[in-house]
């Protein structure tokens, strides 16, 4: 395939990244490190073509579990790293790093709302930013919706937590101990990974839905 390249914008972008990085380094060294990590992550996200909305959408629509598997691998790797860091903090008497949130009916409602928005818009938060970077102007509208929705969500978040049963954060090592908690988490993630192969072999359900959709439209 013939690929079009844009040497001038690429050169300008590299010059901007380096010069702004030096500028940040002079002000505060940590900022320049964060700047480079952010850019590297963005580049990896773009090149890998990972789409977080595809994880939950494509298995149902196209019987395609490849992105779902990729994200499960991502979760397993990041879990291993975070877990080691948490054990280290626990052993050394530091606060355990991580975000621990209460959960309940509101979690499910929020998940469904987010899922509908994500599929209709064609991208989640990371995907939206990535596509704006690629020059897809349409996603600026999605980003506005995302900011508006998050602001509205934050504004009435307490309304949900006070009206619906809210359970305290669940941290498996707290219940089962560090070793069992870690093994259980890996077993769940590994089980989901295995499940994708099992479900892939039974496409009949999805295909029926698909054909109905195609006939209707």
């Amino acid at each position: 395939m013939k690929r079009s390249s844009q040497p001038l914008p690429t050169a300008l972008a590299i010059i901007f990244i380096i010069s702004y990085g030096i500028n940040l380094y002079v002000q505060q060294q940590l900022l320049s490190a964060l700047w480079l990590i952010g850019i590297s992550l963005g580049y990896i996200l773009y090149r890998s073509g990972i789409c977080f909305s595809a994880i939950c959408r494509d298995p149902f629509l196209f019987n395609d579990f490849s992105t779902a598997r990729a994200v499960l691998v991502l979760l397993i790797i990041s879990f291993a790293g975070t877990f080691m860091f948490q054990i280290y903090s626990n052993v050394n008497g530091m606060d355990i790093p991580g975000k621990f949130h209460s959960w309940g009916v509101h979690t499910a409602i929020g998940g469904i709302l987010f899922g509908i928005g994500m599929v209709l818009a064609g991208g989640c938060a990371a995907g939206t930013l990535q596509r704006i970077g690629e020059g897809f102007i349409l996603f600026l509208i999605v980003l506005s919706g995302l900011v508006l929705g998050s602001t509205l969500g934050a504004a009435h978040f307490s309304w949900w937590t006070t009206r619906f049963a809210s359970f305290k954060p669940l941290f498996l090592p707290e219940i089962f101990g560090w070793a069992a908690g870690g093994i259980l988490t890996l077993t769940i993630l590994g089980g989901l990974f295995y499940l994708t192969f099992v479900l892939e072999k039974y496409p009949s359900l999805q295909n029926k839905e698909d054909q109905t959709w195609a006939q209707k439209n």
């Binding site: 789409c51 909305s53 494509d58 629509l61 196209f62």
Partner: peptide, 17 residues
């Protein structure tokens, strides 16, 4: 042009039918 996932593939499949 201007269509995003998953509609591009859905429409392609519809035409292929």
């Amino acid at each position: 042009l201007g269509e995003v996932c998953p509609f591009s593939l859905l429409k392609t499949r519809q035409e292929l039918e």
